[in-house]
Design a protein around this nucleic acid. Structure first.
Lengths: 193, 193
DNA sequence: CGCGACGTTGATTTGCCTCAACGATTGTGG
DNA sequence: CCACAATCGTTGAGGCAAATCAACGTCGCG
């Protein structure tokens, strides 16, 4: 993956960009290297950026009242990461974003991005469609949480995100599914039979 | 609530519209009356519309493998309703949308709405911000599902949607929370003590 | 009036959690 | 580069939250 994948990601939303527009976009983003275990965002800070993952893997999580991590989302190559709730409201984030591998991202501040919308209005459409798709994905996750038991949710995860399976620990997957690592282990051992 | 609330809803996203733009918008939407128990969308159909609720209440739900209803979302006055997943992909919806009360909506087809984006480009921004907020709300729901037990989820629902509480049956609330109606009843009786 | 949907309560079952123990793997400092 | 610690994956025993099943009174409505 490289910087150009950002433009691919944009144009996959059904919009064609001129070379000049592409240049403006590239100059608005900053390439940033993030080492494993480093944080892009810590709970309590305001999320004033968005990032596009070129290489690597991130988790977005919050802590429950017992202090256990609840993973909300994983982002790998070609995905976006930010805390939209904090980004929208300018209030402190309840989530943290941490690199699970040495990673490389394209980073843009909220301020810079708002300016970009003025320069390239068609970006509004691109991000509208992108956000619509994210809504659909989040709705799907809620439907699964309402309809499936732990075993079925794990099977859906395996089917939907086979590449993620290999890059994550069981603890991380269990936290994403909302079950204990011990119970996930039992699900896996039953599945092999 | 009346038609003008649609414009209020738009302008609350930080954009001001001219009178001419408002007129164009009004003429693009159709006022539709929907009787209690009637369907706006049935599972298996493609969702080629969006609707804004002026009066009344709707539920969006799907059926699990046992045939039980799982309510994904309620929409009352001043909210939007559609199945974004089907709307985006043009594939058959897995959800159904049904009126819980005699209702009145502003209805627009996908085709008409795409034309509206061409006529009034600033609508792209309005809908982008609207969709961003929806994403944040969906993320919040996922966090709750991951972090809270049934009692805490119910208390959050009461706090967040007090007006909905009075208009829904316990069965509907239980289905939304993903618990059985019997258990919800037990939660409620404990709470009164 | 009578039927069906609703809300409640109790008895029983079950899916998943918690705690504890263990080997295997990974990481790290000397 | 090795020794030791930390993290990880697994398994078993026991416990709890919530589901299921069943019964019953109430209410609204045709």
């Amino acid at each position: 993956m490289n910087k150009a994948s950002l433009i691919d990601n944009y144009e996959r939303k059904g919009v064609t960009l001129s070379q000049k527009e592409k240049d403006i976009i590239f100059s608005a983003f900053k390439t940033v290297h993030v080492k494993k275990k480093e944080y892009l965002l810590k709970a309590g800070e305001v999320c004033d950026f968005e990032a596009f993952v070129i290489q690597g893997c991130f988790k977005k999580y919050c802590l429950d009242d017992k202090g256990d991590e609840r993973i909300i989302h994983f982002s790998i190559e070609d995905w976006w990461i930010a805390d939209l709730e904090s980004y929208n409201t300018n209030e402190p984030s309840r989530t943290s974003i941490q690199a699970l591998e040495d990673s490389e991202i394209l980073y843009i501040t909220k301020e810079r991005k708002e300016a970009l919308y003025e320069e390239i209005p068609i970006l509004e459409r691109i991000y509208r469609r992108m956000t619509q798709q994210e809504c659909a994905a989040l709705q799907r996750r809620i439907i699964n949480k309402l309809s499936l038991n732990a075993t079925e949710e794990y099977e859906y995860f395996c089917m939907r995100y086979p590449t993620l399976l290999q890059r994550l620990t069981n603890i991380q997957i269990a936290s994403y599914l909302g079950i204990s690592q011990e119970f996930l282990s039992k699900i896996r051992s039953k599945k092999k039979l």
